Amino acid sequence: MATDVEYSEHIPVLRDAFIDAIFSDPDGCYVDCTFGRGGHSRQLLARLSEKGRLLAFDRDPDAVAAGEELAQQDARFAIEHADFARLGEVLDARGWCQVTGIGFDLGVSSPQVDQAQRGFSFRQDGPLDMRMDTTQGQPLSRRLEHVSERELIDILRRFGDERYAQRIARAILKAMHDGALTTTSDLENACFHAVPKQARYGSTHPATRTFQALRIWVNDEMQQIDDGISAAVDHLQPGGRLAVISFHSGEDRRIRDLIEARVHACTCPPQMPVCVCGKKPTMRWLQKKPVRPDEGEVAANPRSRSSMLRVAQRLTDAEAVKLAGYAGGVH
């Protein structure tokens, strides 16, 4: 999926590393939680046997339509029009309680960005929408009508790490009040003129972080990550693998912390000499330090430059007991 730079050709980010991370059994059951246009799914299907199965999720109607075409061509594949926060619910309904590998490729896809009417891009004039699922929820224009300056500043800081959050928030709300904020170009213009002149012409456009933060807010992406990752861990079979690609530090920290809580399950205070909570680890890191694209991939696909891949594996019961024994002694 894409970052803040728009490219018309859809090239799966960290494709081989991602597939290698979750694939272990050609006869297994796999889940692609972010189908997009199917770049990762098609690569995974190429490795599966006739017994293998792949289920994909996407909340974008256009992505689902592309997935349904693939499902007609390959009986091993199916797609759900659902956000991955519903992963556990859907897998339970299908009886998929022991999944071999589950992958997430977070963010917004290139096809979404390339459609001006979706409102994701500040390089094309479009409506203030930014919904990944255009059949649900409120577009950005409606959300902004009910946000306070303090709330908007917090959104820009938390989801965009925006240095000039206060100046940009004030500029956005003033433009709304003046009736001058109706399109993505208006939003870009407000961001551009809100930052100091010396910050307007750097390597990153002044609107980049704001568009990212507002997209995350509109689509409730952080809660989606919380729910999706938790459900994924619970539905992996022993030895099953979880792979997650993220594109900015906020997402990556969230993913790291969610998995780390399953790797180090003990919740006893550090001063306790012996673990008394009894919580056992359920995961281990296969790749705790994020895998990043090499120079060749970045040159071929510049939008991959900020991507980070983390990989973890579900423990067997015996492994969990053994690791709990090590962790349950002296802290």
Rank of each mutant, 00 (worst) to 15 (best):
P61V: 12
G329P: 10
S109I: 03
H146W: 05
D83V: 11
W96R: 01
T135V: 02
A85L: 02
R76N: 04
E68R: 14
G240Q: 06
D114E: 13
A75I: 02
A17C: 07
A171S: 15
A63R: 01
I259A: 03
G250R: 05
F77P: 00
D220R: 14
V113Q: 01
G240H: 08
Y164T: 06
G329Q: 14
F247P: 03
G137R: 02
I79S: 00
G107M: 09
W285S: 04
E251N: 09
L187H: 06
D186I: 13
R314E: 05
V233S: 01
D4Q: 11
Q73P: 00
P61W: 04
P196A: 03
T267A: 13
R37H: 00
L14S: 05
R142H: 09
L187E: 10
A85Y: 05
G101N: 08
Q98E: 15
D83H: 12
V108K: 02
A299V: 13
A171Q: 07
L156N: 04
D186C: 09
M130N: 08
L152I: 15
A231W: 03
R262M: 08
Q138G: 00
L144I: 04
M308D: 02
A194S: 04
R157V: 14
P206R: 07
S230P: 01
L87A: 03
R209F: 04
D62R: 12
D105M: 01
E295R: 13
G278C: 11
D227R: 12
C277T: 12
L128C: 06
P139H: 00
Q98S: 14
S110V: 09
M308K: 15
L44F: 07
F120S: 02
R314S: 08
N301Y: 06
A75S: 14
L48T: 05
K197D: 12
E9N: 05
G239Y: 10
S307P: 08
R215G: 04
A78C: 05
S121R: 07
R310P: 12
R209K: 15
L48R: 06
S203H: 14
R305L: 11
G240A: 06
H264R: 13
A324T: 06
D257H: 15
F57A: 07
G119Q: 06
P302R: 08
A207N: 05
L106I: 12
R42I: 00
K289M: 13
A82V: 02
Q212R: 11
S306R: 09
C191Y: 02
A175G: 02
Q72M: 13
A17G: 08
P273Q: 10
G328L: 06
R305H: 13
L14M: 13
H10L: 01
A312M: 09
P293V: 14
G250N: 12
E297F: 12
V195C: 01
S306T: 14
S246I: 08
Q72I: 09
I102K: 03
S249M: 04
L55D: 00
G107W: 03
A78F: 00
I255K: 05
I255N: 03
V321T: 14
D16N: 14
P196Y: 11
Q287A: 15
L128Q: 00
D226N: 11
L54C: 12
R310D: 10
E319M: 11
R200T: 13
C266F: 11
A65Q: 07
D105T: 05
G179A: 06
Y164W: 15
R209V: 09
E80Q: 08
S110A: 04
P273A: 10
